[in-house]
């Protein structure tokens, strides 16, 4: 039993050490690429931008629109009791812009990109491509992670804009049909209560989520066992780790923003 615990502690320590090392390498390579942008792998970045961004637009629009509708419906059921249906616009607006927009987009990105990153890097590990990179003196982090990170840093905030707009429209749809509120009144109310800062802080959140999803996906890929099952496990672990990091990050960011009154 003692051996098991000692083994576990040792493994955890080693894994944590490797994770910190990976984070350090990521920071270093990001700085290197920013300094020497000609070395940056633009084409890879565009590929991941298409994969995680452009190809996710439709699913983001659909899910966020439905999320806005669900939110509005749930809020309307409660607020009708008090005759405060117009406040549905407040609830939907704040929830979508400050929380659910960035969160839902990050979840979709986790499903699409996080697991794909882990599987891709895991498969490269199986095929010894990572080893090949290392022996060529090319940093795998710079070659594989940095383009993904920049692509996600661009794609997620842009997707969040789409998600926010779709969510607000979902709420508007329910407000104007289910609640019989005038479209103009609902829209004016939404625009009155929301501020550009709400939108900007949501985008800041989505940038942080982009870093977390990329980090979790790539880290689990590098940690993948060099076999088919190992790659599958790493993809699953990447999704779980991403969701955990996103939720924890969201809580910390919300607390941080709340300290400044937002």
């Amino acid at each position: 039993m003692e051996d098991l615990v000692a083994n576990w502690a040792q493994n955890t320590h080693k894994r944590f050490h490797r994770m910190v090392e990976f984070l350090g390498a990521l920071c270093r390579e990001v700085v290197c690429d920013l300094r020497n942008w000609r070395r940056f792998r633009w084409r890879d970045m565009l590929y991941y931008l298409a994969l995680c961004g452009q190809k996710s637009v439709s699913i983001v629009l659909l899910i966020c629109f439905l999320m806005g509708m669900v939110l509005a419906l749930q809020a309307a059921l409660q607020m009708r009791k008090f005759g405060t249906e117009l406040f549905v616009a407040d609830l939907v607006g704040f929830s979508i812009l400050k929380e659910l927009g960035p969160l839902m987009v990050a979840m979709i990105a986790t499903g699409r990109a996080g697991s794909a990153f882990a599987a891709e890097i895991g498969t490269m590990k199986v095929n010894e491509e990572i080893a090949a990179l290392t022996t060529m003196g090319v940093s795998p982090v710079r070659f594989l992670v940095v383009p993904k990170l920049f692509a996600m840093l661009i794609a997620l905030p842009l997707l969040t804009v789409f998600g926010d707009a779709a969510g607000l429209l979902g709420g508007l749809f329910i407000g104007s049909t289910w609640l019989d509120l005038p479209v103009q009144a609902y829209w004016s109310r939404t625009m009155d209560v929301l501020s550009p800062m709400n939108l900007v802080l949501g985008l800041v959140k989505s940038c942080v989520f982009a870093v977390l999803v990329t980090f979790a996906g790539c880290w689990r890929g590098f940690e993948s066992e060099p076999d088919a099952q190992g790659v599958g496990r790493s993809a699953t672990d990447a999704v779980v780790m991403s969701i955990l990091l996103i939720v924890v990050g969201d809580m910390l960011l919300t607390m941080f923003f709340a300290m400044f009154g937002y």
């Binding site: 298409a50 961004g53 452009q54 661009i154 842009l158 804009v161 625009m191 929301l194 501020s195 939108l199």
Partner: peptide, 25 residues
């Protein structure tokens, strides 16, 4: 990948962002 589609994606998102920021205050 289609560079045109990526361009459309980025451009439309930026236009949407600018519109939302304008209307939100």
């Amino acid at each position: 990948i289609s560079n045109f589609r990526i361009g459309i994606f980025v451009l439309s998102a930026l236009v949407l962002l600018a519109g939302m920021l304008y209307y939100l205050g």
